[in-house]
Design a protein around this nucleic acid. Sequence first.
DNA 1: CTGGATCCCTCACGATACTG
DNA 2: CAGTATCGTGAGGGATCCAG
Lengths: 219, 219
Amino acid sequence: MTGRSYGQFCGLSRAMESVGERWALLIVRDLLVRPKRFTDLRRGLPRIPTNILSARLKELELAGVVHRTVLPRPAASVVYELTPYGRALEDVVLRLGLWGAMAMGAPEPGEIATIDSVTMALRSTFRPEAAAGLSVSYEFRLGDIVLSAVIDDGTLNVLPGPLPGADLVVEAGHELRALMAGEVTPAEAVEKGMVTLTGDPAGLDRLVEVFHIPPIPST
Amino acid sequence: MTGRSYGQFCGLSRAMESVGERWALLIVRDLLVRPKRFTDLRRGLPRIPTNILSARLKELELAGVVHRTVLPRPAASVVYELTPYGRALEDVVLRLGLWGAMAMGAPEPGEIATIDSVTMALRSTFRPEAAAGLSVSYEFRLGDIVLSAVIDDGTLNVLPGPLPGADLVVEAGHELRALMAGEVTPAEAVEKGMVTLTGDPAGLDRLVEVFHIPPIPST
DNA sequence: CTGGATCCCTCACGATACTG
DNA sequence: CAGTATCGTGAGGGATCCAG
């Protein structure tokens, strides 16, 4: 454990000692999407120094959150994946991400989105109850990130890359978040050119119901 | 923000920049129990340096998580409380605490429990569905910490101090966690003297159903 | 007494370079 | 590809001091 102990016999303290170090939960976030190699993690976290990534992976392995597998054949390569215990963090990561998304304005200069961060963002804003009985698919183009969401009766599947035959193709930047947060209406967004649609524009109304960021509570 | 940005336009990154610094979520945990003064927070977090507590409170205030109120009368005193946005972290704190509690063994030397940490631990392990239609009260004595839980049809109220007339008084140390985690049965615990009961011992069986720490998932 | 501010020291973090 | 080595900086830790 790198940081010293908090000195408390308490679940939260122990959790913070496992995954509370800088970068740790972002690594978990990316591994929740799928297992990855060292270099994949680097690509998803461009600002992390390699020694820090290395250190975090070791700590997470020691804490039983990550499992390191050495694939012997073709090329000697290493794969990091979450253990079942690590996967049990999904709910926390999703909820914490949604909490942060509530207060998120425009991107700061230099801030990027990654395919994994958007994947988890879509998962965290997804409302199964709003998607019950619904069968629809979207392709998202956010800058150079392209990914797709397939919704089928309360379940969500987020896939990397385009989706030929998607019901609606949505091209946007951070305006997509403002839409999901209800800060702008779909009509406004289309009218002002904040998003570009290919397909039935009415699909955007449904999108903001299915993917929703709640407002900051006032009480 | 003390730590540098993660450089990602992502809810989780933003959340980590708000409450991801060392000690921050423990401060939030204690404030979730009730508003507190600087010195109360110090008492609940004995290992936190005062400059760090000071810095965290400022950062949390800036992030809209904590509100600082100066009470003018009697003595000039300052009260810190969560904003509604900060209170929206309750769910995350509870779940993260429960996640950490799954893998928690015995206390490390020097580790303490505080009344607030136990309060939140009880809240995080509470299963409303197991308490439906139930009306029962417990007094817990854990070392020098005494607190009580009043359960009434799916709702839980945790109070500091003893509870005269409680249905069951439970005196234990960290064995209480092992009980809630199902690592020992109530019968074992009583037999081996791990807990001391005052009241109907059958109440302990109900306790471990109502307050439950799930096992570490194996898949 | 509360609510901090200040000082100093250390180590974790971050940037860069380099290697099996 | 998957890290390790090196090194500078600044946040965290601990003790002390100070104002209301």
